[in-house]
């Protein structure tokens, strides 16, 4: 049974009501709290280390997997390895979120390494939300790593967001588009406040013929928080890649964006854009002329930006 805090966090990080639908694995304070397999999706605990294997049968269509993690014990440190094997031609949505509720004075930390082996012509939408709450002085720390291997014609969309309350995060994403015609889309949304710090590094390798990558990062840095973005895309074959970093900076926050593109092939075409700036005064004024207060206007602008 899930308690109230667990249920609230699950609804925030995985949009789940209770135990949701489809294949589900809920991990709470380092232990399996709930699991449900389906005919096509089998989740098994690893025997050599902490974590699970998620096997999605070839041809599985329109099914979902939810594997949220909840930390409610202060001072708990969690390290987990989750491997996804997505069968040929499957089309699935995977929702993995982590929420930390820390009321203690000790740091809570969850480090997850998610590895995806995406089969031929499979399509995956991966949604990951990170969230922290709790009044204690203990830090809430999340260090996710996402590693992806894409076979021929595979397509993966990663939507990651860290909305609020995570004090310290180091995110690393590595995508290898090995198969011809494979495609990776990464959308990252991040909001930091107070004295939080976030670092996001990415390596995308476009090694297969006619591969594509799109990286869109949107972030808001409030208070005295700091963020570093370091997305790197390498084109090793005929390919197209586009990296776009957009950040809104507020208060005394600091944002560093270092988009890096490398072409190792004459038919590789890569583009990067980066922009950091405060909310334009005219945007706030415009919304004020529509009846919002300056604070409401600012909130509305941030909501849209991070959607």
């Amino acid at each position: 049974m899930l308690n109230e805090i667990q249920e609230k966090i699950l609804s925030i990080v995985a949009d789940m009501k209770g135990t949701g639908e489809g294949a589900v694995n809920i991990r709470s304070d380092g232990k399996k709290a709930f699991r449900r397999n389906t005919e096509h999706i089998v989740i098994e605990s690893k025997t050599d280390k902490d974590g699970i294997d998620i096997r999605i049968a070839p041809g599985t269509k329109h099914e979902s997997v939810h594997i949220p993690v909840v930390l409610t014990q202060g001072g708990f440190r969690d390290m987990v390895y989750n491997d996804f094997y997505v069968g040929e031609g499957a089309d699935v949505t995977i929702v993995a979120g982590c929420g930390i509720h820390n009321c203690s004075g000790c740091d809570s930390q969850h480090d997850g390494i998610h590895t995806f082996y995406v089969g031929k012509n499979a399509r995956v939408k991966y949604i990951e939300k990170h969230y922290g709450e709790g009044e204690g002085g203990g830090k809430r720390i999340l260090n996710p790593q996402t590693i992806l291997y894409l076979e021929e014609g595979a397509s993966v969309t990663l939507e990651t967001s860290q909305i609020r309350g995570v004090d310290d995060t180091k995110r690393y994403t590595r995508a290898e588009c090995r198969g011809a015609g494979s495609e990776i889309i990464i959308r990252e949304n991040l909001l930091t406040h107070g004295d939080q710090s976030a670092v996001s590094e990415m390596d995308v390798f476009l090694s297969g013929f006619d591969t594509k990558a799109q990286v869109v990062s949107r972030s808001v840095a409030q208070g005295s928080s700091s963020q570093v973005f370091y997305p790197r895309v390498s084109g090793n074959n005929k390919c197209f890649g586009h990296v776009q970093c957009d950040a809104i900076i507020m208060g005394s926050a600091k944002v560093r964006a270092i988009p890096e593109i490398t072409c190792n092939h004459v038919d590789a075409s890569l583009i990067h854009e980066a922009a950091i700036g405060r909310i334009a005064g005219e945007q706030i004024l415009k919304l004020m002329t529509l009846g919002l207060t300056a604070e409401e206007a600012e909130q509305k602008i941030l909501e849209g930006f991070l959607r």
């Binding site: 004024l285 415009k286 009846g291 300056a294 930006f305």
Partner: peptide
């Protein structure tokens, strides 16, 4: 303030309206 005037029924269409990333 602008907000108070807006709420009293005054509206203004900007000569060069701002654009918003993410607002529909």
């Amino acid at each position: 303030s602008v907000t108070e005037r807006a709420r009293r029924g005054i509206s203004y269409g900007f000569q060069q309206p701002p654009r918003f990333k993410g607002m529909k």
